[in-house]
Design a protein around this nucleic acid. Structure first.
Lengths: 194, 194
DNA sequence: TCTTTGCAAACGAACGTTCATTCGTATCGT
DNA sequence: ACGATACGAATGAACGTTCGTTTGCAAAGA
């Protein structure tokens, strides 16, 4: 037995759900699909979770908080803007490769949340984006980054990391570290002034 | 009345569907939603289209062919690799801004196609990707691009353009031309060697 | 007149969810 | 050591709703 910290059934269900949501999307995943994936019948799921949306909600907010925590660490590191952007890119890339479903939730499936959670999530997201923009602005002001619309910089960085979970699951040739290094170099090269 | 070449009802339905698919996703869009969007009842849609999936199919393949046509033009232009990449980036960016739904179909919703169309679409896509990779390889061999895994280059370029339709619809400050120029500069800066 | 278009009604299938019940196991009072 | 009790976990059946789609018929246009 490896380092398996015993998972609760709820955690097993959430992970299976995240996997299905990534592959087929939230709406196209039925509770019967999910039940089959964890060797249960649909009705049994409700001994562990209270609704389909609760599962999505947990996935979305868990990962929102993961990114926000990363942002907090980066902010108080006191590093310069390029180093902060590198650290955040690393966080996004690592997360996308280690837990592909996080990025899916963060990017694609949150729109199926119901109110008031939808608004709450959007607020978290906007906050994260604003703090990222602040770093980019600092980098431009310090002369490290070529002057560019920070929205364009921000969203280009964000979404250029989206493909990782589409692609990394086919067990590709490169190691995670190599992928991370190359992507970061590619994107930082685009930001650099001079 | 602007330059409206008279649209058939089928075209109107397809455009409304594309819009809904982008906003809510294919699975979460019902035929009753779609009917309401074109001021019809659900049953009336079937006088013009034969199934929900046919709509998706048309959207996916129309746009696949649009990108493939662009690729063909670029290939026979005889330009060098950086110019070819610029041209293809321009195509992707323009398309994303003028017809946001295309990129959604191309990137996200095609997975809901049924066989045999799913396989057919995947083949078209793989073909397009391979031809893009060939251009990137040529750029590396000529010394214009920093040596990098072409898959990483390819998917980074592809997906870094995805955000445009999420963002451009909120009527933003920058003109389409400005956005295009900045994004291309950002991405080409990352590819460049030296 | 004949084709095209629209609609109300209805279809079976699938959806998320609830319910009463059952089974196994742990905890308790005695 | 014993039966009584409680409880977590699983289930089949059924609920009401929504899904994509079909049918039959009326109105409109050619």
């Amino acid at each position: 037995m490896t380092t398996t910290t015993k998972k609760t059934k709820k955690e097993i269900i959430q992970e299976a759900a995240a996997h299905l949501f990534r592959d087929k999307g939230y709406s196209a995943t039925s509770m019967r699909d999910l039940a089959e994936a964890v060797n249960l019948k649909a009705s049994s799921l409700y001994n562990h979770i209270s609704s389909k949306e609760e599962i999505l909600r947990n996935i979305c907010f868990d990962n929102a908080h993961r990114f926000i925590s990363g942002m907090e660490e980066v902010e108080k590191s006191g590093a310069d803007a390029p180093a902060q952007v590198r650290a955040l890119l690393s966080l996004h890339i690592r997360t996308a490769m280690e837990d592909a479903t996080s990025v899916t939730a963060f990017n694609d499936e949150w729109r199926h949340l119901n109110e008031p959670y939808l608004s709450e999530f959007k607020t978290l997201r906007k906050d994260y984006e604003q703090r990222f923009r602040n770093i980019l602005t600092a980098g431009i002001n310090s002369g490290a980054f070529r002057p560019t619309d920070t929205n364009i910089m921000l969203f280009t960085l964000f979404s250029s990391v989206r493909w990782l979970y589409d692609w990394f699951q086919d067990g590709k040739s490169l190691s995670a570290e190599a992928v991370e290094a190359e992507v970061i170099e590619l994107l930082m090269g685009g930001l650099r002034s001079s």
